[in-house]
Design a protein around this nucleic acid. Structure first.
Length: 946
RNA sequence: GCGGGGGUCGCCAAGCCUGGUCAACGGCGUGGGGCUUAGGACCCCAUCCCUUAGGGGUUCGUGGGUUCGAAUCCCACCUCCCGCACCA
């Protein structure tokens, strides 16, 4: 970090220029960045997104807006306590990540077993990084989502949402960790990422003989019951008889827990080994066929009921299991082998491209030799998919024959349900292990609280929020709408973790994405809490009703809460002044959740005038072309980047990284280049001014001032639309190139021109690189702060079309001449330039006018017929120059090319490297030994090289 | 699979909505020159191919189509990225 960066930080801080108060009547801009989650240090991804916010904030401030940019910290949720817990268990991976990736000192990590400490540590270091980067934040409004006052705010929010019918109760299956007693989301898993519950069918096979009891088999393919030949159990597995909802079921021991977690009443009454079941006969549902129970080691007692029925014709596992038994590969009692030998696969589905026994085809194709071959997984998946989509039920399937398998499945389920032969169990198709190390299963959670995002009326209202807002970049708009359509009810509370309890049901804690939807409103008043103008306990729901909705009288609310009337009114004023948020910028990944939730909740709770006004997103950040990932150590903390490149280097690199929804690639090389480019501003400006002189304006000055007009315009418009990259690219690089041209072009740069342009330039780049701007400004001897200076105005830079077009001509002549010299390799020592005659220029202008539908082109051609200029050459020239340029040239009226080029002759000579002289075609004095003058056309002088 | 966004001259990346000004902005890289004791920084030139008079050829994921004319519009395909829920 440069020394001057520290200096300016202190100046800004001492002058409190980022502390913003409501000033009724003054235009305001309220900008926000979604508060970051404090389970780790901020990284350059945060920095990328947040830098864009600060740039916008600084831009608006310079435009004269009263700007509020607040900041807060997200602590809600289970991730922080989860990390502490794992550390306390001695998890080396977690510890290592703290030390090596996050860069936490050993002594601090010790204390991370306390989640509060962990979060406060990261909050502390992150706050320092944000501050040192020069973000123009009003820190008086800072909070954490576990602060008591914030919890009061969430209380209010959820009470009101519930009253309005947006919070509802429901029952839903979840992946459950019995240790944590909490749902286990994807990010909480050690194993089984992306696995979600699937609905299995439980088919009831009546055990023949003895008392009435059911052997219950799990399957995804109940329609294959017509091909069942036997039932499998694991011979070593633990099985039980249990009373399930009043019936005697035989299932694996682990199935009983799951059943009772899935709203069944289940109690174990007897226990035995799987081998004890082998040899029993059971009656298949619907078909009524009697099937033997046989042993198979591929059966997993942890999955569903630990009992499956066998369809060897269509299930590769079953097919191999049967062969294993018949061919003596499986360990099994002789009686079972005898039973197995009588069984033959029963084909029940016909499918093109397969034989009668598709399972056999799949097994042979893969060279599978026994039922423990892992290739059976693939075989099963492929066959299942093929049969489900393309298979047709055969003759032997009774009233289902001829149906597509997909249809038959539904019908079979219906029928079995009707006959009470089928039940349902939610199960995970793959092993899922919680980060705490416990194996998860599916639990049906009752009476969960949901945000009712399915509500069509709410969806519709939310769409109007989006429609009414500015949404940048425009390609993101569609994503919001499809998200709104796609969202279903969202479970908004959990049983564990940090956060706010549901006010009416203290068992539940408001979940992290659900407590961060309208908190921007809290920023408007949080400074009163922090400034101890009131106690958090005084923040009754009625207080927020008054502050945010204007309900109730100040006198009444003041009396009720004990908050001073004066304070209460001031808070209300702050809210009314600042709300809504004018621009909220985040990474695009938040569109399908946070940003859309944000829109939903505002639609639900706020009047239209307080709906969000601006949504903006940017892409994700990659590091040297790789996706950021802590586990692969592709990770750069904000602090680290800041130390390395300085605040402005970091800011500029990120600002130039990408626009729109494109992902940005962080490259160290790039950051170095940009940093040194910024550094070189100092000598560039210094030298420029030192070499300048006091003189009258000439063409080059008029040109530069006019061009800057255009630059200001583009930068301003780009910033308004959050096109940060485009804005900085123009503000820094294009203006730089403009000045370079000027320095080269002007014989001696004019001090006044340069000073004015430099001062404007410094302000133009100030939102992006504020430290450098302040430093440059003070180095130039100016007193005021750039941060609070006025945004450059185009008014100070008169457009000068003649000057701009003149320079275009000069540049074009240089380009043409160089091109020509390159082609003819022979050494030349003099270039003669012939500018077109007045007649030709006149002709050109008339023709251009006729293009726009003015006079008739034929008539123009006839008028100039005697001048000796071929019409097709002029027409072709117009095409070459382009519509826009022709328009600009014609608009100038008389444009004296000869004057421009003859005065530029010394410059041209310098640029080209040989002597240059300029003549006008048709002039008496013109020397034209090679007869080239006749070829001169407007804006396309002819050349003679010798 | 579903939803959203992309594929441009070595790399990054503008342009595309509103067709012609596009061999296609800008940055980086590379080559050459200047400055300098030298290096870096800085400044200038060049950087698809061919071309001894400013010209020509072939390009914008692939293949078709519309048009006098397409990187830009339409269709199909290939391919990459993001999101897909009880989780920040």
């Amino acid at each position: 970090m440069a020394q001057y960066e520290k200096y300016w930080l202190k100046v800004w801080n001492d002058k409190r220029i980022f502390e913003s108060e409501a000033v009724p009547g003054r235009k305001k801009a309220f900008v926000t960045f979604p508060f970051p989650y404090m389970n780790g240090p901020l990284h350059i991804g945060h920095c990328f997104t947040a830098t864009r916010v600060d740039i916008y904030a600084r831009f608006k401030r310079m435009q004269g807006y009263n700007v509020l940019f607040p900041w807060a910290w997200h602590w809600t949720g289970e991730s922080i306590p989860g990390m502490s817990y794992r550390l306390s268990l001695g998890d080396e991976g977690v510890r290592k990540a703290f030390l090596e990736i996050d860069g936490v000192p050993e002594s601090e990590v010790e204390r991370f077993v306390d989640p509060e400490y962990l979060a406060s540590y990261y909050t502390r270091v992150s706050r320092e990084a944000v501050k040192d980067t020069g973000f123009s934040v009003d820190w008086r409004r800072e909070f954490r989502t576990v602060d008591p006052a914030f919890k009061k705010f969430i209380d209010w929010q959820y009470l009101r949402l519930r009253e309005l019918g947006y919070v509802v109760q429901g029952t839903h299956p979840v992946v459950w960790c019995p240790h944590d007693e909490s749902p286990t989301g994807d990010h909480d898993r050690m194993e089984g990422e992306g696995v979600s519950p699937e609905e299995f069918n439980l088919l009831k096979f009546e055990v023949e003989g003895g008392k009435k009891r059911w052997l219950v088999a799990g399957t995804l393919r109940p329609e294959t019951i017509f091909g069942a030949t036997n039932v499998w159990v694991h011979p070593e597995g633990k099985y039980v008889e249990a009373n399930v909802d009043g019936e005697a079921w035989v299932v694996s021991q682990s199935a009983v827990t799951k059943l009772s977690e899935q709203l069944h009443d289940a109690k174990i009454t007897d226990e035995f080994k799987g081998s004890d079941l082998v040899g029993l006969k059971v009656k298949a549902p619907i078909t009524g066929k009697s099937l033997p129970v046989l042993p198979a080691t591929f059966v997993d007692t942890e999955i569903v009921t630990g009992v499956v029925y066998s369809v060897p014709a269509h299930a590769p596992y079953d097919y191999m299991g049967l062969l294993d038994l018949q061919e003596g590969r499986a360990k099994a009692p002789p009686a079972a082998v005898l039973l197995a030998k009588e069984l033959k696969p029963i084909s029940l589905i016909s499918i093109k491209g397969y034989s009668d026994i598709p399972a056999e085809d799949e097994v042979k194709k893969r060279g599978i030799k026994d039922s423990n071959d892992p290739k059976l997984e693939d075989a099963t998946a492929e066959l299942y998919k093929a049969e489900f989509h393309r298979g047709v039920m055969k003759e032997n399937t009774d009233r289902f024959k001829g149906m597509k398998v997909s249809d038959a499945k539904e019908k079979v389920i219906e029928e079995m349900k009707r006959k009470n032969l089928l039940s349902i169990m939610q199960e995970l198709p793959e092993r899922v292990v919680c980060k705490c190390g416990t194996r998860c299963y599916v639990k049906i959670l009752e009476n969960q609280w949901f945000l009712n995002y399915s509500d069509p009326a709410w969806k519709e209202l939310t769409k109007t929020v989006i429609r009414a807002a500015n949404v940048y970049p425009e390609q993101s708009l569609e994503w919001y709408f499809s998200t709104i359509d796609w969202l279903r009810n969202w479970p908004c509370a959990r049983k564990s973790g940090m956060g706010t309890k549901l006010p009416w049901d203290k068992e539940w804690i408001v979940e992290t994405l659900s407590d961060s939807t309208i908190y921007m409103a809290f920023y408007t008043i949080c400074q009163f809490v922090n400034g101890e103008k009131l106690q958090f306990g005084q923040l009754l729901p009625e207080v927020f009703d008054y502050l945010l909705m204007g309900k109730g009288s100040d006198a009444h609310v003041s009396k009720l809460s004990g908050i001073e009337m004066k304070v209460l009114k001031a808070m209300r004023n702050e809210f009314l002044y600042w709300y809504p948020v004018d621009m909220r910028n985040s990474a695009k990944e938040l569109i399908p959740n946070h940003l859309t939730f944000y829109a939903f909740h505002h639609a639900a709770l706020f009047e239209q005038k307080h709906w969000p006004r601006g949504f903006s997103v940017n892409g994700m950040i990659q590091i040297e072309g790789q996706k950021m990932s802590k586990s692969r150590n592709v990770f750069i903390t904000w602090r680290h980047a800041l130390e390395q490149y300085g605040a402005d280097g970091l800011r500029a690199t990120l600002a130039l990284a990408a626009d729109g929804m494109d992902d940005a690639d962080w490259k160290a090389k790039n950051a170095e280049d940009i940093s040194s480019k910024i550094d070189s501003l100092f000598p560039f400006i210094e030298k420029g001014l030192a070499n300048s002189t006091e003189r009258e304006k000439e063409l080059s000055d008029r040109w530069l001032l006019s061009v800057v007009h255009g630059r200001i315009d583009v930068v301003t418009k780009s910033l308004e639309e959050m096109k940060i990259r485009k804005a900085l690219s123009v503000a820094l690089l294009d203006v730089w190139n403009d000045i370079r041209w000027y320095l080269r072009r002007a014989e001696k740069p004019r001090y006044e021109t340069l000073k004015m342009v430099f001062e404007t330039w410094i302000r133009l780049v100030a939102p992006f690189i504020p430290f450098t701007s302040e430093e440059l400004n003070s180095k130039m001897g100016n007193k005021g702060l750039i941060t609070t200076a006025d945004w450059p105005s185009v008014v100070d830079f008169p457009l000068d079309e003649a000057a701009e077009v003149s320079e275009l001509l000069v540049a074009k002549v240089i380009e043409d001449a160089r091109n020509l010299l390159k082609i003819i390799k022979e050494q030349k020592k003099r270039l003669t330039i012939y500018v077109s005659s007045d007649v030709a220029s006149e002709y050109f202008r008339e023709l251009a006018k006729s293009e726009k539908g003015g006079s008739d082109r034929g008539e123009v051609i006839r008028k100039f017929a005697s001048s000796g200029i071929k019409p097709e050459r002029v027409i072709k020239l117009q095409y070459e120059l382009g519509e826009e340029l022709v328009r600009r040239i014609s608009a100038l009226g008389r444009f004296d090319e000869f004057a421009v080029l003859s005065s530029a002759a010394p410059f041209l000579s310098n640029e080209i490297g040989i002597e240059v002289r300029v003549f006008k075609a048709g002039d008496k004095k013109t020397e034209d030994p090679a007869n080239k003058a006749k070829d001169a056309l407007p804006f396309k002088p002819s050349f003679y090289l010798e």
